[in-house]
């Protein structure tokens, strides 16, 4: 054991200075102290590297978008193609970055990605001729694909399936959006939209038949009732 004569306290340490006042310690007796706490130097290097990599990609993303924007403006031919580039970069972050974060519920992530992709493709459609393919075909068919994936999750991950119930409800509600598009006469090819709505109706039937009690409990939980 060592002693600090300034502080008049004993110090159990291998250090040579008093942790309180910094004055040199006096060794009294011979005992060597075992290490009390880990040496902290080897800490979380991996995480910092990961962040650095993300920073590099973030910088490249911004640089690419800016450069394209300037080239687009300087050589303006009536087509804002740089928006497509910037949108594409944002979508890649959405598709690749979100899963890497691993903080989000898988299904919420799927829904976010679906909406992101839909907005992006609508933008491309508008810029290149406004032919209406995005609303006519991509929106409803992408919806059907994501709905199938979510239903599969509910079936496969039975243990945690109450986690996915709420997303199934959200998907069912989203499924009726073509009604609005049809009402405003935005779309002219109807069969994909009808398919999507049929899926939404099936989803609701399925929820009621298989998960009614679960759904009730889940809603009570989320509402803290």
């Amino acid at each position: 054991m060592k002693k600090c004569l300034e502080c008049n306290v004993w110090v159990n340490t291998n250090a040579i200075r008093c942790p309180l006042c910094g004055v040199g310690l006096n060794q009294l007796g011979q005992s060597e102290t075992t290490l009390l706490y880990p040496s902290y130097s080897k800490n979380r290097h991996g995480k910092r590297k990961m962040n650095f990599l993300a920073k590099i990609f973030f910088f490249i993303s911004i640089a690419a978008s800016l450069i394209c924007f300037f080239v687009n403006v300087l050589t303006w031919n009536g087509l804002p193609w740089s928006l497509v580039v910037a949108g594409g970069i944002i979508i890649s972050w959405l598709l690749v970055g979100l899963p890497l974060l691993k903080t989000m519920n898988l299904n919420f992530m799927l829904i976010d990605q679906m909406i992101g992709v839909q907005i992006y493709l609508y933008l491309i459609d508008r810029i290149f001729g406004n032919k209406g393919w995005s609303l006519n075909y991509v929106y409803p068919l992408l919806y059907v694909a994501v709905a199938i994936v979510i239903v599969l999750f509910v079936i496969i991950y039975r243990i945690a399936w109450h986690d996915y119930l709420i997303t199934a409800v959200i998907m069912a509600v989203i499924g009726f959006y073509p009604l609005i598009l049809i009402a405003f006469g935005v779309i002219d090819v109807l069969w994909p939209s009808y398919t999507a709505m049929m899926f939404a109706v099936l989803l609701i039937c399925g929820l009621f038949i298989f998960g009614r009690d679960k759904l009730k409990k889940e809603i009570r939980k989320r509402m803290n009732l």
């Binding site: 600090c4 159990n12 340490t13 942790p19 009390l36």
Partner: peptide, 9 residues
Amino acid sequence: QVTIETSEG
């Protein structure tokens, strides 16, 4: 009588 220990070794 006080005995000091610290996480800084």
